[in-house]
Design a protein around this nucleic acid. Structure first.
Lengths: 342, 342
DNA sequence: ATCTTTATTGGAAACGTTTCCTGAACCAAC
DNA sequence: GTTGGTTCAGGAAACGTTTCCAATAAAGAT
């Protein structure tokens, strides 16, 4: 690897000054005459000197890095979040280390447990589940943490800034389906343990839950959607609307229904959640509720970095973003159906 | 930030040994009796000691981190690559720092120029363009670099491992369109400077290029596809097939054609490139050529980390991955069209 | 019992910065 | 020309490891 041995000392020698002076010059601090400063900077330039960040960080007790732990960068709205975090961090001159927890609760806890080994100044985590251990580990941790809260209310005494993706998106979706006159509404998503709120919203919106209208798959994927479609189709009494736990599931439903010759929204209306880029390109276009992922990521990052820089302790923020409903073809009201059918 | 002041010295005191012994214990090196080792490890456990990586790295002259510079994590097959890199790096106990160059050539060069400031042991870069400066900067750099080569042949004297996403994917796509009997084939993509090979494959596959059948948009996006569709529709003599520079463009075409009442593949066949997850969920399903992104990313990462660990110098690898064609509905041959139309 | 050899151990230097603190140099004012 | 106050510069300590090297203890050979 043959690193350049250009250290601050070499620069000092070249410029004919002491190392302290070089340090002052490159960090442009006061207490140095413009003339020597220029001299030093010239030497820096000529030698191509770059301060060794390990040494700097060792001395300054920081790393200028934060970690971003997400379930899986390949999923739905995560790239958007990763992007948003990276951009916000860059503004503070911070780098982002990427960690995929792989939808594995154990590895989420591991991240927190080994957080010191991570070699970062702070952590942004988007947890999949919220076992009691999670809060304990967070509260025990000395590191600033921002949580991007996905669906579940966290105990208020959690020692972290929490930016919540709305917990109302399910309600919004359900209200929408009801408002367009659907009465037999189904739910499709992963087992409720993963993102409970999504399913609770379903229960809450209905007087009575028909168990046959609830389909729990393994995950929030296209496959889950396809299997859910098969399940609903085989019912004696099919639903007339489906609230899908996320867009991938919704698209899985859409596809399978198309293959089965079931019309959306005439036979069944569908609403997804996340409002990802795919919604606009499915057939029919998918109605969806946006949870404002990139805005949330930005705020979570800013809170974290402010906390780090100000060495703020306690006074944890709670920010809640409101969801937005985007009505597209998959949930047009029946009275307007003719506009859609060509 | 109130760091734990648990240093190796505290552990040494607790265990009643010297600091050198502690170091030997935690890095399980030889020359230490099992008994003392156990004693030290117990103290480590009890105090929750975690070695300060800045100090370690300063001493060892490494960072245990690599940077991944991609145009934009939100685009098409990039998340897959980022994921693959992270997983491969984890295997070597390395972390990945994420950088989005934002499709900006200048910022790509900046990454290379400031590579020392990046505080990493190596770099994986997926460049958008290949100005002469790029090679110069790479060759001048002392840091190990793996290039994920996207479409353009690099000079063979580039001092980096190069893993190439195939340059034959365009050829494959064109041959496919020709094989299903299409004669008036168009191209849609970004201006040719960005990924030249994609367009060159188009030129190479044809005896004569009709300029009206070539549409260059600003980028490889849905919008570019939509605009291309408008362009082709207004032609006196429409194409009967389109080779799209990537899937997003292809999907943009697909959508706009649907709105315009033009049938795919009956009126116009379409083939995209990347074979991303969307291909299976469009209507009609999109034929596409996969460039094997995650395999490429894995190999690029492994080469980089091997180079780092073995301190290998010179002997740069060139790996080429072959593309794979996935035929779906958007490019079914006309004789089989009836199978598709319901 | 004495002398080698081997297995463990601890002290101290080094990695490359930042920063405290002391010292020199300069200037103005008496 | 001495004094007092600024301003600027440099030496050295400290950050928390790893590792060389010397030292000690244990063990084996004579």
């Amino acid at each position: 690897m043959e690193k350049n041995k250009v250290t601050i000392e070499v620069v000092a020698a070249k410029a004919g000054v002491g190392i302290a002076t070089v340090s002052r010059a490159i960090n442009n601090m006061g207490g140095i005459s413009p003339k020597t400063k220029a001299k030093v900077l010239a030497a820096v330039e000529e030698l191509g000197f770059v301060p060794n960040s390990n040494a700097q960080n060792l001395k300054l007790r920081q790393t200028k890095q934060i970690a971003l732990a997400v379930p899986d960068i390949r999923n739905a709205f995560i790239p958007e979040i990763a992007y948003s975090v990276e951009q916000a961090a860059k503004y503070f001159d911070y780098r982002v280390v990427q960690i995929n927890t792989l939808g594995n609760v154990r590895s989420e806890l591991e991240v927190l447990r080994d957080i010191k080994k991570l070699h970062v100044d702070g952590l942004i985590i988007l947890p999949l589940a919220y076992p009691k251990t999670l809060k304990d580990l967070i509260n025990k941790s000395k590191l600033p943490i921002s949580i991007i809260n996905y669906g579940k209310k966290l105990d208020s005494d959690t020692k972290a800034d929490i930016v919540s993706l709305s917990t109302q998106e399910g309600k919004l979706a359900m209200e929408h389906l009801i408002s367009i006159g659907r009465t037999r509404i189904a739910y499709a998503g992963a087992q409720k343990e993963i993102i409970e709120e999504r399913f609770f919203a379903y229960e809450d919106a209905l007087d009575h839950v028909d168990p046959s209208l609830v389909y729990f798959g393994e995950d929030f994927s296209l496959q889950t959607g396809a299997r859910a479609a098969d399940h609903f189709v085989n019912l004696a009494h099919m639903p007339d609307a489906i609230y899908a736990g996320n867009d991938m599931v919704a698209i899985g439903l859409l596809n399978r229904f198309k293959e089965l010759g079931i019309r959306v929204p005439e036979d069944i209306a569908i609403v997804g959640i996340d409002n990802n880029i795919l919604c606009a390109i499915t057939t029919p276009k998918l109605s969806s509720v946006s949870i404002m992922g990139s805005e949330v990521a930005k705020v979570a990052t800013e809170l974290l970095l402010q906390r780090i820089q100000e060495q703020k302790i306690g006074l944890y923020e709670r920010v809640q973003f409101e969801p937005r409903l985007f009505v597209r073809e998959s949930s047009l009201a029946r009275t307007r159906t003719t506009q859609y059918i060509e």
